[in-house]
Design a protein around this nucleic acid. Structure first.
Ligand code: SF4
Ligand code: SF4
Lengths: 139, 139
DNA sequence: TTATTAGAGACAACAAGAATCTTTAATATC
DNA sequence: GATATTAAAGATTCTTGTTGTCTCTAATAA
């Protein structure tokens, strides 16, 4: 059990887009080159992010992607769900039993992780990165 | 991303073994029938649990499996690691960066889940199940 | 010695993920 | 309106890991 690579790529892309100057769009070509990925493959990941409302896309010349304005507060969980879907990690094999204690523990532990992931915003770590960068430059 | 079915089977088996009267062994045949599984397949799962030290196996006539005496306190996490291994959910694709903030968040959230899973003991839910059963019978 | 049971190995079936190629649709610019 | 540019969708292949079966070997109680 592990996250798909697509989730990894999506997180990197989102951080990059947030780090970018606002209102500037960037094409899938650049994003792919930045991560050493095939543009068509990354395109599918970006489409998922778009459908989840995390980024906006405009086709045509001078088009590309940019961060969706409305959610200035995009959490890690938002990105993960956009890629992995929102199904549970643990699902009962055969006879689903209402109020089962095994399931309860598994779900609760998963919720713990999701809780943490929903509280962590991408913008926070981007800001930290910029601080680190500034500190380095002032050396 | 989801738990493998093997983890599900392993959890059911462990709960069943703990629920069983102590020191009584049960063969893979019975355990497989109980879960509607092929014995040979379940056998592999049981071998993993044995190697992890969670259960003991004795071959030969009147042999079978029983819960390992020493750890009366087997956590959910123990079972999960025995099956899924102990690799991280999130691992960096290409250029691993020391002190990366993305990785940090992902690891911390995962640790949250594992923390919860390590605090939950199988024996606890077996005891709860027995209480539920008694309550039902006294009706 | 024999019946019984776990364990190991090879192997097939299947599903999901990763990745590429091709075609289509939308849009800014001229 | 024509054209260049760019996202989106579809089909398809490749790879990987899981699931499951079959067969053979090793250990052990009776
Ligand atoms: S986890 Fe509980 S509800 Fe799910 S299959 Fe097992 S016993 Fe049934
Ligand atoms: S998560 Fe961080 S350390 Fe890992 S590949 Fe991405 S940037 Fe590098």
């Amino acid at each position: 059990m592990k996250y798909s690579n697509a989730t990894n790529y999506a997180l990197h892309t989102m951080v990059y887009l947030i780090w970018l100057p606002k209102a500037s769009t960037v094409g899938v070509q650049d994003l792919a080159e930045f991560q050493k990925l095939s543009p068509t493959y990354l395109s599918k990941i970006l489409t998922k992010l778009t459908k989840a409302g995390l980024i906006e896309s405009t086709p045509g010349a001078k088009g590309g992607y940019k961060i969706s304005k409305s959610p200035k507060e995009i959490s890690f969980l938002d990105v993960i769900i956009a890629i992995e879907g929102e199904s549970n990690l643990f699902n009962c094999s055969i006879h689903h039993n209402e109020g089962c204690l095994i399931e309860k523990v598994m779900r609760e532990s998963e919720d713990n992780m999701k809780e943490e992931l929903s509280n962590r915003l991408l913008i926070d770590i981007v800001e930290k990165m910029e601080l680190q960068k500034q500190a380095k430059e002032s050396n």
